[in-house]
Structures are given as C-alpha cells and as structure tokens.
Amino acid sequence: MDWGGIFADAVRTAIGVQAAAYALTSVGLNLHYGYTGLLNYGQVGFMLVGAYGTAITADAGLPLFLAILVGVAAAVVLGLIMGLPTLRLRAEYLAIVTISMAEILRLVARSRPMEGFTGGSFGIKGFANAFYDLNPIPSGDYGFWEITFSSRALWVMTVGWGLVALASLFIWLLIRSPWGRVLNAIRSDEDTARAVGKNVFSYKLQSLVIGGVIGALAGTLIAIDAQFTAPEFWDSVVTFFAYTIIILGGPGRIFGPILGSVIFWFLLGFTDQFLREAIHAGWPVVSLLEPTDIGAVRFALVGLGLMVLMIYRPQGILGSRAETLVGDR
C-alpha cells in the first residue's frame, strides 16, 4: 500500500479546481439555504446556464469575458423566472420549481432540436483558449513531494480559489450589514419581517439571484477547466453535493462552504485511491469489489461519515451549537 501516494492524491483533489468550483457554487447556495432559508434544489441549473451561456457565446466567436457576462446574465434571468412566481408562496414551491427547472434545462440542452445551439449530447468543446492565453505562469510542474500541478491546472486553480475568496468576501460584507439582518429575520420568521415593514419577497428574490450568479460562475469555471460542457456535467446530484458540502461545513457560516468542499473532496479522493490500492493489494473483503464499484462505494463511505457528523455535530463543523439548540425550541 502506497499510503503517501493515496494521501497526496487526496490532497490534490481537495485543493483542485473541482473543489474550488464546488466551494464557489456552495457559497451561492449557502446564501440561499444558510442565510435566507430558501430551499433551492436546483443550484446546478444556475451552473448549467453559466456554463452554456459562456460556451455558446464564446463558440460563436465573441470575446470570452463577454461570454462570461452572458452566462451571468442568464443566471439573473433564470433566478427571476424561478423566483417571481414562487417566492410569495410557501417554501416548498421554490423547491419544486428549482429541482424541476434544473432537470428541464439539462434535458433541453441534450435534446435533438437544440443540437445546433448546445451541441446536444456531444456538448461544446474548446471555447476557452482565450482564458489559457492569459496564463502568466510559465509552463512546468509546481508543488512539492508528490503534490504537484501543471502550470495550466495552477492557473485555473488560482482563478477558481480567487473567485471563492471574492465571493466569500462579498457575502460577508452583505451579511454583516442591515441587509443581512433582514435576511436573517426572514430565515427565522417571515411574518415578523413583514410586520415590521420589510419587503420579504424582494429580499428573497435578491438572495436567489445573487446566489444563482455565484453558482453560474462556478459552472463557468468547471466548463473552462474542462474546455468542454455537456449535459451530463449538470446532473441534479451536483446540487446535492453542494448541500452536503454546506451541511458538512456548517450552514450560514462564511467559511463553511470552503472547508466543506475541501473535506468533501479530500474524503472522495482518499477513499477512491485507497479502495483502488486495497483491491490491487488483494485485501480481504475489499478485494471482492470490482474497480468499477469504487465510485459507488466511496459515496457510501462519505454518506456514513455524514451520518456520524449529524449524530455528533449536527450543526456542521463550523456551525454554532447554541443556534442549533435554540432552533429546536
């Protein structure tokens, strides 16, 4: 067993682009779920429109930065379309609409009639060269020990974690302001916020759109990293990974999504590599698994870990115990 290699692999996964993109979309979803109490089960829909908005526009020959703005604008529109009819109603309606909308968007992107536009199931490739042309890092491998990244990967990671830092700062500025206090009141009790003159509907819509735009940037990041977007990237499970990350880190905490994403991807990377090695080394029981089972088993192990967390630390790693106790009353 190459324990060092397993560990190095896990660390690479935990600080890689994927982890950054999931941290970013979770920062957005944390504004919805953690700070406003909105049940958005379709965060991946925002990521999809961000990725496709960028890819389609850039593929048509327009500058990449403009294409990213188109992706952001698409997220704003999506937020309004989902929020305007549902946010005056009970919380469940938003949940139903968002999860359905995310699936509809994915199926539409894959559909035959849209092929000329979205590339259908083949997706869109190679639209982000302009991004890599900007890479200031000389080519080569960077890092130490077995944890190294190519200059290309390091460039995307820098931009990705930079976006995570900016988005987190942005949310922190908002949350500590009176604007954030209104959100907190809405999360606790909408009627009270209304009774003291707060336009609850408007705040929920603002929250949905802002968190959605952050999600769209995360989707764009994933697409730029892969130089590719296809419908199977944007399965509903992505939203539930984001929820897992938030619950792991602690909902309604600035650093919750970041810590949650790093731990989530570390665990996935670790169990993946560990199972691979263990099967290869012929460990008892474990060697009964086929390599193709690894994907499923590692999620089962992460699920087990989450269950243990919920039993011993239901508020998440960074969450406040006092709030959880009070919330139960």
């Binding site: 500025l173 908002l174 604007w179 954030g180 707060k198 603002q206 802002i210």
Partner: peptide, 8 residues
C-alpha cells in the same frame, strides 16, 4: 444599509 448596494 438594507439596500443591496449600500450594504456593501
């Protein structure tokens, strides 16, 4: 401070 942009 309850206005989105001023809040920042």
């Amino acid at each position: 401070g309850e206005h989105f942009l001023a809040a920042l």
